[in-house]
Design a protein around this nucleic acid. Structure first.
Lengths: 179, 179
DNA sequence: GGCCCTATTTATAATTG
DNA sequence: TCAATTATAAATAGGGC
C-alpha cells in the first residue's frame, strides 16, 4: 500500500527499517484497537523495535489478556497458535554445563600441579604474585562451581523452555501447583 | 476498506461481529508477520474472539517476546518472594553474573601480572606447566564468559517460567502506564 | 525524530454463489 | 453456512519539510 509494492523481506537500509517500523507499528496498533472495539475482542500486543525498544498495546490491558491467555494455555484445548521459526533450544545450555563441569575438573588437577610447581620457587615477591593469582583462581573456581550448582538447580525450569510452548505451560503450571 | 465505510463502534449483529473478527484477526496477524519480517522486530499478539476463543501470533514466539517484555519492565522493588527450594530466583543469577564479570576483569589483570612473573623463570619444564595452566585458565574464562552470555540470553525464558501469573500482571501494568 | 502528502497497494464490507 | 468476489476504504512507500 504505497507508491510501490515492496517485497516482504528484511529491509536492508537501517533508517528505512526504523521508519517502516514506526509506521507499521502504528498501523498494527490501530488495527488492534479497531478489532477490539468492533468485535469486543480482548487484544494484547507486545513489539520490540529493531532498536530493541518495547512497545505495547492492550485492550482492556496487556496484563489482563496475557494472564487470561496463560490460564487458558494451561489447559490447551481450543487455542490456535501461529508461531514462526526460531524455537529456542535449551539443550545447548545443558551441554555447556557438562563441558563446564569437565573443564572444572581439569582445572582442579592442573591447580594441584600448580601448587607443586610454586613450591619449587623461593623468590618471595614472585611467590606472592603467584599465590595471589592462585588464590584468585581458586576463588573463581568456587564461584563457578557454586554458580553451576545453582544453574543445575534451575535446570528443571530451563528444561521446560526447550519443549514446545504448550508443554512449557503445562510443566510450569504443574510446578506452580506443587509450590 | 470495503464497500462502505463503517463506524468504529461495537458491531451489533452477532454474526457480523464474528465474521468481522475472523477477517480482521487474519489481517492483524498478517500485518504483524510482515512487521516482524520487514523490520526484524519481535512481536507477540494474543487475541480473544467475541466467543472467547484465544488466538495468538508470535515471532519468534509469544512466550519469548512476552518474557523479554516482562524482564525489561519488572522493577526490582516490585519483587515479591516466590522462593522455595524448587523455584529459583533469577535475580540471584543476575547478581552472580555481575560478580562474575568483575572477577573476570580482576583475573585478566592478574593474568597479565602472571605472564610477567612467568618470564622471570627459565626452567623449561616449570614454564611449560605454568603456561599450560595459564592457557587453561584463559580458556576457562572464555567459556565462563560465553556461558554467561548464553545464560543471559536464556534468562527471559527462565524468568517467564518462574513467575506466577499475578506477578506478571503487576509488572506489565506498570509498564503500560509508562508508555 | 516527527508530521504532511499522495499514488498506489492492500484490507475488507458487502455481496454473490 | 459459508468461501469467493468485488467495489471501496484504509494503509502505506516514498518523498518533502
Amino acid at each position: 500500500m504505497g507508491r510501490r509494492k515492496i517485497e516482504i523481506a528484511r529491509l536492508t537500509d537501517t533508517n528505512n527499517r526504523q521508519v517502516t517500523f514506526s509506521k507499521r507499528r502504528t498501523g498494527l496498533f490501530k488495527k488492534a484497537n479497531e478489532l477490539s472495539i468492533l468485535c469486543g475482542a480482548e487484544v494484547a500486543i507486545v513489539v520490540f523495535s529493531p532498536g530493541n525498544k518495547p512497545y505495547s498495546f492492550g485492550h482492556p490491558a496487556v496484563d489482563v489478556v496475557a494472564a487470561k491467555f496463560l490460564k487458558q494455555e494451561c489447559n490447551p484445548n481450543t487455542s490456535q497458535s501461529v508461531s514462526s521459526s526460531k524455537v529456542v533450544n535449551i539443550n545447548k545450555y545443558n551441554k555447556q554445563l557438562v563441558n563446564f563441569a569437565s573443564q572444572l575438573r581439569d582445572e582442579q588437577e592442573k591447580g594441584a600441579m600448580f601448587d607443586e610447581t610454586i613450591k619449587q620457587f623461593a623468590g618471595i615477591e614472585t611467590l606472592t604474585h603467584l599465590q595471589m593469582l592462585h588464590a584468585s583462581l581458586v576463588k573463581l573456581k568456587e564461584n563457578v562451581r557454586s554458580y553451576s550448582r545453582d544453574v543445575e538447580a534451575a535446570e528443571t525450569l530451563i528444561l521446560f523452555s526447550e519443549k514446545p510452548v504448550k508443554e512449557v505451560k503445562r510443566c510450569v503450571s504443574k510446578r506452580n501447583k506443587k509450590i
